[in-house]
């Protein structure tokens, strides 16, 4: 099974590097986040980027963006380019095809997030040097490593589930974008609702924030993400039916 997953990963990686017309897109896709999160943000925020929770932005948004660009291609792309039938007619097990595709998208996004965390750390040290090397605390580093992996897996699980059902890559991209943006919008609306609907909302929100234990919140968020990741992967595996895919 591991060998089969590695085989699918080999093909996905090759395709990723050589996708027609994507060289410019790939360079831009790499440059934009590097400039924004690796250079601009460290310049603006300075040492607070390393000392505060700002680095979490990289761990949340970079995996979302990177996986969001790649994973819609996974099955919808094979379907669109008429390569899915031949792949399904091969001896590869369902799990190998699915996990191989997910693993490449997650690996790429995770690597990208970690690289940006490192670039921004170097940038902060270079531009805001005060005589000693500034590092992420072990807890921040650990949270970033885990959070970026969990976020990448979350979007990959959701994206592959959507891609399995989509006739076109464009359709899969649009559905995935809606599916990932909707919870974010909802998350922004909850505090606003609290402020406007609940009596003394502002005071209550302040109390809530003051009473919150950041470590506990992060642990809860990560546990929820882990459960969601596993659930989505299981759902994708259950959805992966050769008979259904060959007919779509």
């Amino acid at each position: 099974m591991i060998n089969d997953i590695l085989t699918v990963m080999w093909k996905e990686r090759k395709g990723l590097l050589r996708y027609q017309g994507s060289r410019t897109r790939a360079v831009l896709g790499l440059l934009i986040p590097v400039v924004m999160l690796g250079i601009y943000l460290p310049l603006q925020i300075g040492r607070a980027l390393v000392e505060g929770p700002w680095s979490l932005l990289t761990s949340v948004f970079i995996p979302m963006m990177s996986v969001g660009m790649m994973i819609p291609e996974s099955f919808a792309g094979e379907r669109e380019r008429h390569t899915l039938g031949t792949l399904l007619a091969s001896r590869l097990p369902d799990e190998a095809i699915l996990f191989g595709k997910v693993a490449v998208a997650v690996g790429y996004a995770w690597g990208m997030a970690l690289m940006l965390l490192l670039v921004s750390l170097v940038m902060v040290n270079v531009t805001h040097w005060d005589g000693q090397v500034l590092l992420y605390t072990p807890i921040t580093a650990l949270v970033n490593v885990a959070l970026s992996l969990l976020m990448a897996s979350l979007v990959a699980g959701l994206g592959v589930l959507i891609s399995l059902r989509s006739a076109t890559v464009q359709g899969a991209q649009q559905t995935l974008m809606t599916a990932t943006l909707f919870p974010l919008v909802l998350l922004q609306m909850i505090p606003l609702l609290l402020l406007n609907v609940v009596p003394n909302g502002r005071a209550r929100l302040k109390e809530l924030v003051a009473a919150a234990n950041p470590t506990q919140i992060i642990l809860i968020v990560m546990a929820v993400l882990l459960v969601l990741d596993l659930g989505l992967l299981m759902a994708a595996l259950a959805r992966f039916k050769r008979a259904r895919l060959i007919l779509n």
Partner: peptide, 18 residues
Amino acid sequence: VRTRTGTLLEHPGLYEQL
């Protein structure tokens, strides 16, 4: 069956970017 057979289906099924 799939382990012991080869296929050329309706479409060539080739990865054109490779």
